[in-house]
Nucleic acid binder design. Structure first.
Lengths: 175, 175
DNA sequence: TCGTGGAATTAACCCAAGTCAAAACCTATG
DNA sequence: CATAGGTTTTGACTTGGGTTAATTCCACGA
């Protein structure tokens, strides 16, 4: 992958222990992160202290705050390690600069944004059209491996229900 | 705007009457549409016949099915005119082709995808973290003009509640 | 093997929102 | 005006999920 090579060459490596943050909601962080190994959790913390999980990031995937990178705003979510993580960090600006002169990089950036947009669109669909029970069923079907990596507690907050709620949903589906 | 000029030159114009579709859920349509005037509604129709509104498109904005354009899939939603519409249509492929040779176009495509991704991300946030009442309040604050353009019925399905539900929410907020 | 702490389940209660159906309200048209 | 259409509101009932707190389950280390 072109982009992977570029990031590997130009980015800086970092590693983090479980529980450590890569960045926090409110930070100014306009970098793109590539996860080499480990497991990340991207989450929102609402005013009343409730956690809502935006996504889990598995090795081989990218993450970064678009808002902070492009809208002169601060990060709208936090990024924390659930496992020991090895990442590569690269400022978005450096990537765009490279894209300007190298068509292959440019195409890779388009691909990256595209796959990102499609993921977000799929999630929008699930949150808008499906019930919590349906979302859980889908998760079990599509990414059963994730269930083994994180607690049910976190699955619940990813699906948009409370842990208690998810427990009941499971019971209903099983019964 | 570079991109606007390119689309205007290379795209084909079309117009549609209220109620007519630009494309339907299940279609193979890999074009990007630019709305010159009118009002569009992008919506999902679920298996049990329920409509969920993905977004409203106002003049000056773009819309198209990323899924259909890039994942060899069919459109996951339908696009219909709520008013008389004037659009410009351009196959995504033509855009990418142009982007390969013209850095300005390439940058514009990146911008387009970026703003698209950010919109989707904001919507994901609202659906995941906010209550229906909060989403309604936000809508009233941020896009009050939209309330005048579409029925409350449609606002409800955009917010993820039933028309009856929204009526009650309004009452509660007012009381 | 026993405790200890976190995770998951269960129970009891409440409220928001769905459903269905009826009523009230518009707005345009003949 | 009067009516017919669609839109919004209201009512009565049901249900899914939140909240809190108690209980059970489990994994792990002393």
């Amino acid at each position: 992958m072109e982009l992977g090579a570029f990031i590997a060459e130009n980015g800086t490596s970092l590693s983090r222990e479980p529980g450590q943050h890569v960045f926090r909601q409110g930070d100014r962080n306009s970098s793109l992160y590539f996860l080499k190994s480990g497991l990340l959790k991207a989450y929102y913390l609402s005013a009343d202290g409730k956690e809502h999980i935006k996504s889990f990031i598995l090795p081989g995937n990218h993450i970064g705050s678009l808002m902070a990178s492009h809208a002169e705003k601060s990060c709208s979510f936090s990024l924390v390690c659930l496992r020991q993580c090895n990442l590569t960090m690269l400022p978005f600006s450096r990537l765009y600069q490279a894209a300007r002169s190298d068509p292959a990089i440019s195409a890779a950036v388009v691909d990256l944004l595209l796959s990102f947009a499609m993921k977000k669109e799929a999630r929008e669909y699930e949150l808008l059209c499906l019930s919590a029970a349906d979302r859980y069923r889908r998760l079990v079907e599509n990414t059963p491996d994730l269930l083994k990596l994180v607690t049910q507690n976190e699955i619940a907050r990813y699906l948009g229900v409370t842990p208690v709620g998810l427990s009941r949903i499971k019971k209903r589906l099983a019964g």
